[in-house]
Computed example of a mutant assay.
Amino acid sequence: MTSVPTTTGSQRRPGRSMADLLNSQGFRSLAYQVLLAGFIGLLGYYLYSNVVANLAAQNIATGFRFLDQVSQFEIGERLIAYSARDTYGRAILVGLLNTLVVTAAGIVLATVLGFAIGIARTSRNWPLAKLATGYIEVVRNIPVILQVIFWSVVIRNLPSPRGAIEMGGVAFLSNRGLTVPVPVGNPAYTWMFAAFVVAIVFSIVFSRWARRHRERTGKYVETLWIGLAAMIGLPLLVWLFAGMPSEMNIPLRKGFNFTGGMNVSPEFTALLLGISMYSSGFIAEIVRAGIKSVPRGQTEAARSISLRPRFIMRYIVMPQALRVIVPPLTSQYVSLSKNSSIAVVVGYPDLVNVGNTVMNQTGQAVEAIAIMMVVYLIISVVTSSLMNFYNRAVAIKER
């Protein structure tokens, strides 16, 4: 008598587990994402192949080999050594550094202006609040490119170097920009900068210790003046021990221009003022919204125990307002970095301006634009990452 094989539950389990896997929401979600990524990849490859084929049909070379060719054009403003005998790659690097400088300076200036105007708009001082409101309404409702052009026209209509506005006989304001004296190079200044960095680190560490001490004992320890004393006093001590170097490179009129000193160009100034003031209007509204989001009862309770206004703003209002301020503030920083690309309208040699020159000379339009796109993408991602890190650092931990 032969036995009939039976199907056990353990033998049927693989079939059921495979069906469960295929019907699971997680697997289907992953599969759809893989299919979408593959479709986008194929579409990108098709477009790239089409562009390469069309360029080849017009005898236009593709690739990034042009970056090693001699640029044959000068750049007026630069932070590193550059001449017309350098490569296109170095020219793009010069433009990138100029973009980073104006972006960093713009973020600092826009933040200072925005926070000051935003706090002023919440003030109970009627003229100050109305003045802040007027500033916000003006700078927010004028396109940023018009503001940049406006400041460029204002600076260009300043007196010529021969009739420049003197500032103490050592600095000059003219249609060539602001020319100021600078210290002559000395190793002591490097050590002073290092001392300043050490003082900043000390101030941060001391501020955190003071906060923990206040939370533990309830006793307030002054940190602002101690931090400022460290940041001023430590570099000053280094300067004293280094022999007090004081030689200055003072600008002098010579012909139709100035010699010596350092010149802040009209193009840089116009671009910096335009993008900074435009962004500061939006930052001010973000700050005002953050301050208004703090319950009014908390500020009234703080006043009832005779806390000083600066203590109320620093320890009660701002820590809570930052949770509302930081996320949209990140978007404004990213927008400011992208707005710097309008430097081309005033002739400031930023990444886009230099990239356009490279593109016109080489004909490598796709590659030049791709470089600019990738660079701005990296700047935006880095800015967002740093702000997200700061947001997590200042976030109030719920217990």
Rank of each mutant, 00 (worst) to 15 (best):
I200A: 08
L43W: 13
E222S: 15
V201W: 04
A365K: 01
I117Y: 07
Y135C: 09
G355D: 03
T62G: 15
G297A: 11
G95I: 00
P235K: 01
S152M: 01
G95T: 04
V264M: 07
K130E: 14
G114A: 11
A230F: 00
G9S: 07
V317H: 04
W191V: 06
M248G: 13
Y315F: 14
I378S: 05
G76W: 05
G227C: 05
F196V: 11
E367F: 04
Q320W: 07
G218C: 08
V182G: 09
A199N: 13
S174F: 06
A19H: 09
V182D: 03
P183T: 12
K254V: 08
V264H: 03
M359H: 06
V197C: 09
R296T: 07
V139R: 06
L271K: 01
L377S: 07
T6P: 12
L21D: 14
N356F: 14
G89W: 01
A61N: 15
A57I: 12
L146E: 07
L36E: 11
A188Q: 12
A110C: 13
G347S: 11
S293Y: 03
M313C: 04
G26W: 00
R208T: 11
S10W: 06
S123P: 14
I371G: 05
T87S: 15
A301L: 10
A37N: 08
F27S: 14
S337H: 08
I92L: 08
S83H: 02
Q364R: 06
Q58H: 13
A188D: 14
A289S: 13
I250V: 15
G185M: 06
G106K: 02
G255Q: 00
D20M: 11
I250K: 09
T217Q: 04
R399P: 12
G41I: 07
H213L: 07
L146H: 03
F73Y: 06
G169Q: 02
V94D: 02
E300R: 13
F196H: 09
A302E: 11
T190A: 09
G363R: 01
A370M: 01
R124G: 10
L236Y: 15
W126G: 08
V352C: 08
S265W: 00
Q25N: 10
N339M: 08
A171H: 02
E300A: 12
T330S: 13
L178F: 08
Q364A: 06
P251I: 00
T259E: 13
T223R: 06
S280I: 12
A199T: 15
F196N: 09
F196M: 10
S279W: 03
R78D: 05
A31D: 08
V138E: 03
V375K: 02
E222P: 11
P143K: 05
Y220V: 14
F39H: 05
T87I: 01
G168I: 01
R156M: 09
I149H: 13
T8S: 15
L43E: 11
T217C: 09
Q33D: 10
T7N: 13
T103D: 02
F268H: 07
G15I: 14
I142C: 10
G227Y: 01
T122I: 04
E222A: 13
N125K: 02
S304P: 13
F258Y: 05
V354W: 05
G168Q: 00
F73L: 02
T223V: 15
A210M: 04
L21R: 14
N50A: 14
G227K: 01
P328M: 04
T223L: 04
G243A: 03
